[in-house]
Amino acid sequence: MSPEIIIPLLAAAVQSGTPILYATLGEIFTEKSGVLNLGVEGAMIIGALTGFLVSRYTGSPALGFLAAGVAGSLATALHGIVCLWFLGNQVVSGLALTILGAGLANYIGTPFVGLSAPGFSPFAVPFLSSIPFLGPVFFQHDILVYVSYCIPVVMVLFLTRTRFGLSLRAAGEYPAAATATGLNVIAYRWLGIVGGGFFMGLGGAYLSLAYTHLWTTNLTAGRGWIAVALVIFAFWRPGRAVFGAYLFGGIMALQLRMQASGTQISSSILLMLPYALTVFVLVLSSWRKGTSEEPAALGVNVEPTE
């Protein structure tokens, strides 16, 4: 394939991988604290709608983007209430959040279907964008893509180099050990849930404010579920999540292009590709588990003390 085809394809891969990356990083953050949140899809779509509405009524996409993060946190806080206060089943609660989020967003969003809101537009980063090959692929996007480049680095530094990150990981690995050293495990799990929800909300907002500038029903289209799978594929490492997100972004971009090029392959098959890859990737990553950093106490509720 010639560079004229491959460079735009890779650039598109980065762009459509970005919302997945936000959501995956959010889920990694949550799961590192020991909480399994299957409500990523719900938190994303609530974030997408909130971002869209705030941007539409204030005219400020930046404000919309931040509001989407807060909305994601609030949505996942429901999951926190169920799991951390009432010790409810994390799987069921997460599924409920997904269904609730989709229903709520589609209901509130119905009058806005097809309407647009001010969003982010691409701009080339000086100097960097003129690097051959890498420049057009990575540095001719909107600012939200550039922000997403920084998050994995910050997250790794937080998790490994700060006292709080260490405590958060301990809450996910062995809550009893963390409690024995006097830490408040529940508080760190709240941080994991609400912090992760913030990124999920941002991922949703990317769809409504940068990827498209308008609202449609079912905007997230299963990207939250792909993020859940990608966490496993990434072995709970933010760095690997970047790779995984762009891989899926690439498949999504590819199938869109193939549909547009009028191929003989049925569009249903093409649309299925990212999800088929999800299954494939899960099988693959359960084969070699050696370097996985899966939190040992993932999905296990902790009885609050006192």
């Binding site: 180099r161 700060t162 006292r163 260490l166």
Partner: peptide, 11 residues
């Protein structure tokens, strides 16, 4: 050993 110890935020 440093888990749960009070001190600076940056390790």
């Amino acid at each position: 050993i440093f888990l749960g110890q009070k001190g600076a935020s940056w390790l």
